[in-house]
Design a binder for these strands. Structure first.
Lengths: 183, 183
DNA sequence: ACCTGAACACCGTTCAAGT
DNA sequence: ACCTGAACACCGTTCAAGT
């Protein structure tokens, strides 16, 4: 659905790209900007935006696609380059920091979780966490049996941190608490 | 602001009560019901609802007022009646279960937290948790230094549990994990 | 095959006019 | 002192008409 190389006509593809670009800028500034205003800013009719992204979630997911992919790909890389527990910590830090539309992403992920349908971006995310968890279990840092979906749910607090203090002491304190709980 | 015994005229008080009653029913069924529809269902003009509850948050807080108060009052009672760790567990369970408008309440609490202003209901909530934490520290179940605001933030996952499984194994698993992390 | 943009029903919010 | 309800600007969404 987010195929960049899909069979889209050239103009459609251009519109899609422009919409995503404008959406990123706009939603970063004001995470509850209206879809119509994004369409107008992108120079397309509302119907066009709606065709490409039938729902607000779909638009947010589209914007985040690359960052989510990067985050997912990062997990195995970290495990190879660092001791498992260190890898887990680093991944959590990255999760906490990337982007400023965190709230919108959190909602999208939550919707994907509660909807029960395995929406794009969610399953790989769980997979990434699972990868880290198993590494930490193998090294003996975590007790076996932890569920990746559970941990993603728990890590959701990262997006509810007051705006100013992302990555500050508070987030790290709570990540440490979760790690301690897993040990 | 939520004074029931305040200087409200009789008709105003009656309107207020009816609005809260209708809001509870409506929001329990559909947590994103429009304010106008609530006003209409309560038989008042939109302006009247707006006067009593200038914001959606205010309305949600109004509905939850009593339950929040009960939750806050429960903390010391539990500490007196049970061993501290048990009290903490029971309070978390209660937090997870009460009401079905959890999502709306979560948003209101979150708004209160991020706004930084000590909105009604939030501070007492933190106080209740603090009471439990200190008891658990005194008994040696928890290590000292845990921050009540942090723990409320972490417990926020309870409201993002998929609809069906409140109070199910998953919630308890994660509460246990937090407890273990605090130990 | 894709886009435009008017149109629809609705939203939150305000405010003159009533009692 | 409080309420009503019309009004405003806007929202998400649809769909005929265009190219």
């Amino acid at each position: 659905m987010n195929d960049v190389k899909g069979g889209l006509r050239a103009d459609a593809q251009a519109n899609r790209d422009r919409i995503l670009e404008v959406a990123r800028e706009t939603l970063t500034a004001t995470s509850d900007a209206s879809l119509n205003s994004i369409a107008k800013a992108a120079g397309v009719g509302p119907g066009t935006l709606y065709r490409h992204f039938p729902t607000r979630e779909a638009l947010v997911a589209g914007v985040y696609r690359k960052e989510i992919d990067a985050l997912v790909a990062l997990a195995p890389a970290l495990v190879e380059a660092h001791p498992p527990l260190e890898a887990f910590r680093l991944w959590c830090d990255r999760l906490a920091h990337y982007g400023r539309m965190k709230h919108a992403l959190a909602d999208a992920l939550h919707a994907a979780m509660t909807a029960g349908n395995l929406q794009e971006g969610y399953l790989p995310m769980v997979g990434a966490i699972d990868h880290l968890l198993r590494a930490c279990e193998a090294s003996g840092d975590f007790q076996p049996g932890a569920n990746a979906e559970d941990i993603l749910l728990l890590l959701g607090f990262l997006w509810r941190l007051p705006a100013g203090e992302v990555g500050e002491a508070r987030g790290e304190r709570l990540i440490e608490l979760i790690i301690h709980g897993l040990g």
